[in-house]
């Protein structure tokens, strides 16, 4: 289908983008890579009358490590994240997730900022960013502010940005050396949305799990932290029995949706198995 008609502007700077948003208020939508917004517009699920295309703004595509964090410009593409040596080395959970988003065409166009701001509970980056305790730097008419990941993802397709704000950067605290991560994703068909997926980032010191972070995709109306798993495993030996016992709690406190793809029971099953496998993989137990 073809989107409803809309007006379009492509500002060259962030302040100009914010000014456009101020001018057009609720009627406006920010377009980055277009791989979340355009499909919604084609299905007429979203019918903004004004599009602010931030894709022409320079210097929003970068990945760099400084001051104890790794920063991603909002327009950094999935492809750039997938193939970044820095990300592979420091945040393998993100390179793993990036490699599983859509197909190569999508990964060449789609951006981490757009995917995060879209706040799709079945999207791949939100659960990762939640698990990694990311911070979101957003710019608005009153300047810049920082939103924590746990506050950023509010509801299905709803983030914590004000209508006049634009996401500028996503920062992830640098994990300790030796930290490992992965993203396991279940879908019935190749190159599809996740039915359930699990992001895991773990640091093992000696034989004990020093840090563990679990993010869950597709288990609610927003990405969830596998807090029960984290609590159960933190400080414990990174052994198969401990991992299994912790992973069994992956669905604790979640209220997974019933849809055409899966029942809530099956989603709980998937979350449990994928969490166990992810933990085994990153602790070398596979």
């Amino acid at each position: 289908m073809i989107p409803a008609s809309f007006d379009y502007v492509a500002p060259k700077t962030l302040p100009e983008a914010v000014a456009e948003l101020v001018k057009h208020g609720d009627e406006a939508k920010v377009l980055a890579g277009g791989h979340s917004l355009i499909p919604l517009m084609k299905l007429r699920l979203s019918t903004p009358s004004f599009i602010v295309d931030i894709g022409r703004i320079k210097d929003l595509n970068y990945i760099r490590e400084a001051d104890g964090h790794i920063a991603f410009g909002a327009l950094t593409t999935h492809h750039d994240i997938e193939f970044s040596d820095l990300v592979k080395r420091r945040l393998p959970v993100l390179s793993s997730a990036a490699s599983q988003i859509g197909d190569p065409q999508v990964r060449n166009r789609g951006t981490i900022g757009g995917a995060a701001a879209h706040a799709d509970p079945f999207g791949d980056f939100p659960a990762c960013l939640l698990a990694l305790d990311a911070e979101f730097k957003v710019v608005g008419p009153r300047g810049e502010r920082t939103i924590a990941a746990k506050d950023f993802f509010v509801e299905t397709f709803t983030n914590a940005l004000e209508p006049q704000e634009v996401l500028r950067e996503i920062r992830v605290p640098s994990p300790p050396e030796g930290s490992a991560g992965t993203y396991l994703k279940f879908s019935r068909r190749s190159q599809d949305w996740a039915i359930v997926a699990v992001a895991a980032q773990v640091t093992v010191k000696g034989h004990a799990v020093e840090r563990v972070a679990i993010g869950l995709t597709g288990m609610g109306s927003r990405p969830l932290r596998g807090s029960a798993v984290e609590q159960a495993l933190r400080g414990k030996p990174a052994h198969a029995e401990e991992i299994r016992a912790a992973a069994d709690r992956a669905a604790d406190g979640s209220d997974p949706p019933q849809d055409l793809n899966a029942s809530p029971e099956y989603r709980r099953h998937l979350a449990t198995v994928l969490t166990r496998r992810a933990l085994e993989q990153v602790t070398g137990h596979h």
Partner: peptide
């Protein structure tokens, strides 16, 4: 199984 979406190492 899972192909482009990884679900593990063939468990």
């Amino acid at each position: 199984p899972g192909g482009a979406g990884h679900v593990g190492h063939g468990e």
